[in-house]
Design a protein around this nucleic acid. Structure first.
Lengths: 223, 223
DNA sequence: TTCTTTCTGGAGTGTCAACTCCAAAAGTCA
DNA sequence: TGACTTTTGGAGTTGACACTCCAGAAAGAA
């Protein structure tokens, strides 16, 4: 995967078709199962060791799959990693639901804060953000991956934005509150908090970061 | 460097001696020069490509040095990377001085904010935090590196803490302000902001993050 | 100068990792 | 059943990469 060469062609309609992407192929039910076992195994290994240190052979072993299967379901390592990014994003959002979709009260924001901190404590502060870590590794190296990661962050940010916007619409927050900025600040503090928490093996950074932004949001409370 | 095996022995006095560390050797002036050229080259390459994707041979070429020199000045790649972490930390703090040491007024905090954002704009949002990126890659994989990285963050946090503490002592901030928490929040928002800025190729996350915490600090302003 | 230590060149080694290939097993569908 | 497509096994290839080794050049100490 070094010197990632990614081919893409622009179709007649102007849409960009991704040559070499495996996601549009037709697979049988059995095939899809093998494919998802591979993605699952790769996700775990990438989370633990990073992209560069995750070998295709390691993934094969963990998924119980042969080399030819790897390249039957994915064109190359890049393609697999993109699938991992998508999978980890789904997983991440699922782990924070349903609270993530109901971030429209101060109580809900606190529940979310507690949830995130608990998750890190459960794993003893080992492992940062599954997509943040990949972002730090690939953002400058792989344009396609960077775009995917940006999309992931967007997907994460959207429900936070929506929740805060609802609070403002409902009158919980002052009418001129810049809820989009607050939502972005929450995502920022989450990423930074996770990285420092991972490095210091201590949830204080995550806690302090989130609490700081939450306190700031409260200064916009109406009445 | 996969499966980093780091030997350390406990001496009679109970102090931990680092077997294999190169920093305590005696080198001539010429030797030190070659050594620092290696560190400089390695730092650039690691910043651009990450640790795993930086080959010893690449560093050799960039530094204009032979393989035997690499292993004359560093016991192994781990040892080199530790030197890179130290070097990048020095560089980073130097780039933010003298403003970093004078963060004891709202005006100074704003100057620091502008400085950090300008730095990212100058490099078109390419490259995140030189030590944050290494932290994301190595924190869970290499205990020695993790300790070094934690120290780096401490060195970074210290002047911020000191500046805010001076503001409180001087009466710019209310007496019961938790300045340590605010300093940590600034570091958190900086790391998260850099990562998102790198991924989105847009300084908004860094700007919004810093502004949010700065606004929150202002709510502690005295009188 | 002579002795010792440091510094440097460059070929070599063993390992691992990404990717390929051919052919066979298993499933699909007429 | 028979023609087809999909799925799988596993050996092989190619290159990269961390690290070693030996010997010679340069520098420092006496």
């Amino acid at each position: 995967m070094p010197h990632t060469t990614v081919k893409s062609v622009t179709s007649a309609k102007g849409a960009v078709a991704q040559v070499g992407s495996s996601s549009d192929r037709k697979f049988t039910a059995k095939g899809l199962l093998a494919r998802s076992r591979i993605i699952e195994a790769a996700s775990e290994l990438v989370f633990a060791n990073g992209v560069a240190r995750t070998g295709i052979e390691d993934v094969q072993k963990q998924a119980g799959v042969s080399a030819s299967q790897m390249y039957h379901y994915f064109t190359d390592k890049d393609d697999l990693i993109r699938a991992v990014i998508a999978h980890q994003t789904d997983d991440l959002l699922a782990a924070q639901r349903p609270v993530l979709d109901e971030l429209d009260s101060f109580a809900a924001l606190e529940r979310w804060r507690d949830l995130v901190i608990d998750l890190q404590e459960q794993r003893n502060c080992v492992g940062g953000c599954p997509i943040g870590s990949i972002a730090a590794e690939l953002a400058d190296l792989n344009p396609r991956a960077r775009a995917d990661l940006a999309d992931s962050f967007d997907r994460w940010e959207a429900p936070i934005r929506a929740g805060l916007a609802r609070m403002r619409a409902r009158g919980d927050l002052l009418p001129d509150t810049d809820t989009d900025a607050l939502a972005l600040a929450l995502l920022v503090v989450l990423q930074g908090g996770l990285l420092l928490t991972q490095t210091r093996r201590n949830t204080a950074p995550l806690r302090v970061g989130l609490d700081t932004v939450l306190a700031h949001i409260r200064t916009y409370a109406a009445e």
